[in-house]
Simulated assay, not measured.
Amino acid sequence: MARQSLDAGEENPIEPKAWCRGAANAANGNASDAVRDQMMRHDPKWATFNSAYINEKVGFHLQNAFLDEPTEDSLLGMLSHIGLMRDPRASKDMVPHEVWEMMPPDSGIAALEAERAQLKGGQYGSKEAQRKNTIRRAYKEDFFHNRPTWDIEADGQEEEEYVEPAIDLYIPERAELAEILYNQPDNLSSTELLKLRIQAAELMVALCGKRETVKRNRIPRRARADVTVKEESPGPDPFPLLMDRKQCPRCIGDETLSYEERTFKYCRRAVMYDHFDKKHAQQLGGVKQMPCNHPKCRREALEFKHLNHFKNHVERVHGVKLRA
C-alpha cells in the first residue's frame, strides 16, 4: 500500500494509520470527544487523538479571514484530507537517471564491499539501499516544496503534457479500484460519486479478503538421486495413511491439485491451522455428511456427521491435530 501510494503521486505513503486518521478527523467536531475516542478505541485520559491522530493541516483559510475576504474552507478541506497531499506528476523514484550515473560511490559502502567476505550478513547492501532511499526522499520533498513556486513561475508558458501511466495490475479487484480512484470523470453528480465510493469500499473489502495461495515454484523439489533400484522393491507410498502434522488433511485428497500441492508441508502447524480454518472449515461446517477425502479413506467411503467428528478422525487415524 505504501509503495503504490508513492507511485500514485502521494507526498507521503498511505498506510493503515492514514485511514484511521481520516475516520477520526471526520468524527472530530461532528461528535463529542467521548464518542470519537470510543469509536477509535482510545483511552480519553491519554488524549491519543490530539497527540497522534489530529490533522496537522488546519482546515481553515486563515489568510483570507485576516484579509476579510471570502474563505475557501471547502477547498482546503479537500486538499488537507487525512493530512495528505498528492501530485500525479510525482512518483516514488523521481531521481533522474543521469544523477545516479554522475553520483560518486560512497567511500564507506566501498570499504564494506571490499570486506564483504568478512561481512556475513551482507551489510554493505543494506547501506547502499539506505543511501538510495535517502536520495529519493530528498528529491520528493524538494518536488513538493517547490512545485507551487514552479507552477506560478510557469504561468502562461507551455507545460509538458502529463501522460497518465497505464494501469497494468494482475488482481482484477486491484485494477478496478485503481481505475476508480485515479480515472474519475469531471462531471460526476453527487449520486454517481456516492455509487463510486460504495463500489470502491466494496473493492477494498474484497481485496483485503484475498490471500496468497501455495506457490508452485516455492514448493521444494528434491533432486532425484541416481540410484539403481531393484524392480521387485516396492516404491514409497505417495499418500501414506499417517500424515505429517504440518500437512493439510483436505488438500491431500484434492485431485485438482498437483502432487506437490497435495503433499505440501507448511512451515509451522499454526500456518496449516490458519489455512484449514480459512479454506475448509467454513465449507465443511454447512455439510451434513462430510467424507474424508484421503485416498485411502475414500475407498472405505467414510462419512462424518459434524466437523468435530471429522477432526477426531483426522487426529486418530492420520496423526494431524486440528484446532478445536
Rank of each mutant, 00 (worst) to 15 (best):
K246A: 11
E232V: 06
P88S: 08
H275V: 09
L112D: 06
E160L: 05
A65S: 08
F304R: 06
P185K: 01
L177N: 00
P249H: 06
Y266E: 15
H318A: 12
W19A: 09
G77C: 14
Q282T: 13
I198M: 08
K288R: 10
E159S: 10
A47R: 11
R218Q: 15
A114K: 10
K246V: 13
E72F: 12
M1N: 05
D106F: 04
Y266L: 12
V35I: 10
L79P: 01
P104W: 03
G121H: 11
P148T: 02
G156W: 00
S126L: 12
N50V: 03
M290W: 02
A27M: 10
A114G: 15
E300Q: 12
A52V: 06
H145W: 01
D186S: 07
L193Q: 09
L62V: 10
A175W: 00
L203P: 01
H61A: 13
M204Q: 07
A301S: 15
H97L: 15
L119Q: 13
E260R: 11
E101A: 15
A90D: 07
A52L: 06
Q4E: 13
P104E: 09
W19M: 07
L79M: 09
L203Y: 00
S189F: 00
G125D: 12
E176S: 02
E15W: 02
N183D: 03
A201N: 05
K246E: 12
L207P: 02
S126T: 07
D87R: 00
Y259M: 14
A8I: 00
E158Y: 02
T71K: 01
R89V: 04
L79T: 01
D226M: 10
N146I: 07
T134F: 05
K92A: 02
H294D: 11
E255S: 15
V227K: 13
E56D: 07
N12W: 02
P70C: 06
N187K: 04
D33K: 07
I198H: 09
E11H: 03
G285F: 13
A8D: 01
P13K: 02
R89S: 12
D87N: 01
E212T: 15
N50A: 06
M204W: 00
I135C: 04
P236T: 14
S5L: 00
K195E: 10
E161V: 08
V317A: 06
S190A: 10
Y273G: 09
D254R: 13
R298W: 08
R36W: 00
K321T: 14
R197C: 09
M290F: 06
S32I: 04
E202H: 06
A206V: 03
T263I: 14
H81Y: 10
H275L: 08
K127M: 13
Q130M: 13
L203E: 00
Q282G: 15
E160C: 10
E115G: 08
P249M: 12
Y259D: 15
Y182M: 01
V205Y: 07
F66K: 09
E202L: 09
M103C: 14
P88V: 14
R131L: 14
Q63P: 03
A175T: 04
D254H: 13
E10H: 01
K210V: 15
D142Y: 05
N64I: 05
H294Y: 03
R136S: 03
K120L: 08
I167V: 13
